[in-house]
Simulated scan of single mutants.
Amino acid sequence: MARFRIPLIIAIVLFISGLALTAALKDRHYMLLSLVLLLAALLPVFIRLERRPLESRELVLLAVLSAIAAVSRIPFAALPSVKPVSAIVILSAYVFGAEAGFIIGAVAALVSNIYFGQGPWTPWQMFAWGMVGLSAGWLRNAWWMKKRSGMLIFGFVWGFLFGWIMNIWYIISLPDASSWGLVAAAYASSFYFDLAHALSNVFFLAILAGGWTKVLERFRKKYGLLQE
């Protein structure tokens, strides 16, 4: 199992390095950096090609799930932090694993911002949603994750973790990012948005977990998609 995690760890290190670079560049070159991070997110796929060739339908599946996750943001654009993206990424990773979850989360953030607007926040969203998928994939065999309540709690927790990751981008963009008062104010002001994201994750997971998971598992078993 360790050999399957090494490409993901490399991708995560590249992502973190890229995010550190955004702190130095501030608001400059964010689009180029987002594309570089997209290649980092796809690194596990490139390395997988050395183990066995990916079938075209597997690439199509990743593209379709990424598109679904991205488009799902649009109907809820008027509701800040309420979005089914995290739920879709979690369920996709639960069925197809950490590699798929990481890629779907990162790609969904980049693609959806074609509609919502690209900015220096894009690389951070790519990382945050990528980590949602990565952690869901790594924990999918845990006994509590197999329970509906466990998955709902997982989604609730990630509603806050996602916001806390995004707060880092906001804090480093402030002129006095070293002020603990500003840091505390940033996290306090984001609480209700993070809570809305957490509750929406629970809501969408409760709706989608049954039917959505069964459909994806049926595709995986029937066509042998993204098997380790």
Rank of each mutant, 00 (worst) to 15 (best):
A77S: 08
K146P: 12
I104A: 06
I47L: 14
L110W: 02
V183R: 09
A128Q: 10
L182I: 12
W138H: 09
A98N: 09
A2K: 11
L49G: 01
F162C: 11
I16P: 00
M131A: 12
A11F: 00
A87G: 08
F154P: 09
L182K: 14
K26N: 11
W164G: 09
A23I: 06
A20V: 06
I88H: 04
F127E: 03
L65I: 04
I153S: 15
A196F: 09
V85C: 06
P75T: 09
S34V: 03
A23W: 00
L161R: 13
I104F: 05
L134H: 09
K221N: 14
P75A: 06
L216D: 06
T22G: 06
A41W: 08
A209S: 15
P53C: 08
P120I: 08
F102W: 07
T213R: 02
R57N: 09
L49K: 11
R73Y: 01
M131Y: 08
L152S: 13
Q118H: 11
A41G: 02
R140H: 04
S66G: 02
I6Y: 06
A24K: 12
I68W: 07
L110G: 00
V95I: 08
G117N: 03
T122G: 02
F96S: 04
F156A: 10
A70P: 00
R51E: 12
L110F: 07
P175H: 09
I103Q: 05
A206S: 14
D194G: 13
V132P: 10
I74V: 05
S112Y: 06
L39T: 07
R148E: 12
I172Y: 14
L61C: 02
S81Q: 14
L54T: 05
G163W: 02
L8C: 12
E228C: 11
A185Q: 14
G150K: 07
L195V: 08
R220M: 04
I104M: 02
E228F: 15
W169V: 04
M166I: 15
Q118S: 02
A136C: 10
D176G: 09
T122C: 04
A70V: 00
L174K: 08
K214C: 03
R57Q: 05
L79V: 10
L33T: 00
V89D: 08
Y30C: 05
L195Q: 13
K214L: 07
T22V: 00
L62R: 11
A78Y: 14
A11G: 07
N167P: 03
G155A: 13
L110I: 01
D176C: 03
L49W: 11
D194I: 11
M126I: 01
I153V: 15
P80M: 06
V85E: 07
I16R: 00
G97H: 10
S72N: 02
A128P: 07
P53W: 06
Y30L: 05
I171R: 10
L19Q: 04
S66T: 07
